[in-house]
Design a protein around this nucleic acid. Structure first.
Lengths: 99, 99
DNA sequence: TTCGTAGTTCGCAAACTTACGAACTAAATT
DNA sequence: AATTTAGTTCGTAAGTTTGCGAACTACGAA
């Protein structure tokens, strides 16, 4: 399917963000971060019933989608929302669906 | 992964709704319906660059997720948002992310 | 310099998604 | 009864996602 002209960039972005949210683990992480600003991936690892490698994969997806960012605080990594993109995502959803 | 106790039902629902939105075609349909209350799948078929069978599949996903409902108006089918679930989805997103 | 901690990458398997065309169903029209 | 219209279902192919454990990297502490 050639999507070049048929969907707006905004629709594609909104769908992309929705995809990043489309898994309970990732929803959990986003929800946590939207409430407490930061967390360590070790803390997530303790609480979530998945292998570390799997968690790492989910965090990578959130990073690739632009919704979170990690900061090294050796030996841990501190994750926060990427505020700019997070605001964009919220705006996209609000505008589309008048939430 | 056993998700029985680890994520709230609400997180799972929210992720489920996000998944339904996680494709440009489905985002397009939802956006349209949130703006104009109804549409015929034939109209969508004319405007979207995908095979009828593929569109049918996407509409089925939205139906299965509970976000839309179809009503037969022979020989066409009229689609609308499923208002109850749509409100639920919006509420879930608002509450989670204080949008 | 070796060890432990924290996290990532690799390789793989199983399941799911996306897309298509062909064949099908259901109902209204001719 | 045959045709047309509108949409669904089936079978299939290619690609993506989810998950795991094992092997790896990076780096601070002993």
């Amino acid at each position: 399917m050639n999507t070049n002209k048929l969907f707006s960039e905004e629709q594609k972005k909104a769908a992309r963000y929705a995809k990043a949210m489309a898994h309970p683990v990732r929803m959990y992480v986003l929800e946590l971060l939207s409430k407490q600003s930061c967390c360590y991936s070790g803390d997530l690892s303790e609480v979530l019933p998945i292998a570390k490698s799997t968690l790492s994969q989910h965090l990578k997806e959130l990073k690739d989608a632009g919704l979170i960012q990690g900061e090294i605080e050796s030996p841990k990594i501190k994750y926060c929302l990427n505020k700019e993109n997070w605001e964009e995502a919220k705006q996209l959803f609000k505008n589309r669906f008048n939430l």
